[in-house]
């Protein structure tokens, strides 16, 4: 086989993820993949696509004993001699993503019966200690108008004579654009101002600054940035 042929590489990568080849053919492909990063990349592409099919599966809650065993088996792993745990930042990334997932599911469950457009992205705004303060859900409706549903978590501590202002940090590196004031309790829906719409994507970075009551008088952040987060595309 000519392993440089692009079409063949694509097919073999897709078949590898589906698992339709067994035994020697599968092992040969695995050896090939180890020394061919381009092929590995095509496998990752198909893993990312075909595994979306898992979403169509009807969920079944596993018995509690599964979690009990998982806890037992991982309790030992934690006392290991570092190794993988040196890469703690990656683990934190996963933890943060997990809170994103939590919000995503809450939003899905919450929105399902409503005729509203499904959320396009979610974010958790957290402080430096990773304490979450607000959840943000981006909704894009049929007319491409964008809205942000923001919910304050119990950890938000109101500050007298101050407001929390939400900013979009454009990917281009341009100046932050105000998205509005955040509620100190409960939820609010912020209509995204026209000039922020083009720069606001499903994976935009967001920040919260502390401003005089009513918001920044200058149109740019004037106080300290206390919370940050990034939208996670759904």
């Amino acid at each position: 086989m000519n392993y440089q042929d692009q079409t063949l590489r694509e097919i073999l990568a897709g078949e590898y993820v589906l698992g339709t080849r067994r035994g020697a053919a599968r092992r040969r492909f695995e050896r090939l993949m180890k020394k061919d990063p381009g092929l590995r990349e095509r496998v990752e592409f198909w893993e990312g696509r075909f595994n979306l099919l898992a979403e169509a599966v009807s969920p079944v809650t596993p018995p509690e004993r599964v979690w009990t065993v998982v806890e037992d088996r991982t309790a030992g792993a934690r006392r290991g001699d570092g190794g993988i745990w040196n890469a703690l930042s990656f683990w934190r990334g996963l933890a943060l993503t997990a809170s994103g997932l939590a919000v995503a599911l809450m939003v899905y469950v919450g929105l399902r019966p409503a005729p509203e457009a499904p959320p396009a992205g979610v974010a958790v705004l957290a402080d430096e200690a990773r304490q979450a303060a607000w959840t943000v859900t981006l909704v894009v409706d049929d007319s491409q108008a964008k809205r942000l549903k923001v919910t304050a978590l119990p950890s938000v501590a109101p500050k007298p004579d101050r407001s929390f202002e939400l900013w979009l940090l454009p990917e281009s590196g341009a100046a932050p654009v105000s998205l509005g004031l955040l509620p100190e309790a409960g939820s609010a829906v912020l209509a995204v101002p026209g000039k922020a719409v083009p720069a606001l994507s499903r994976t935009s970075a967001l920040a919260v600054s502390l401003e005089p009551r009513g918001g920044s008088p200058t149109g740019a952040p004037t106080g300290p940035v206390l919370y940050q987060g990034r939208l996670l595309a759904l």
């Binding site: 990752e44 696509r49 979306l52 745990w85 990656f90 683990w91 994103g100 997932l101």
Partner: peptide, 20 residues
């Protein structure tokens, strides 16, 4: 899930979505 716990460091948010 034991693998997920052990290999959490291999997760690359820029290369894969958590669900997939």
């Amino acid at each position: 899930f034991v693998n997920i716990w052990r290999h959490a460091a291999d997760f690359r948010p820029e290369r894969a979505a958590p669900q997939t």
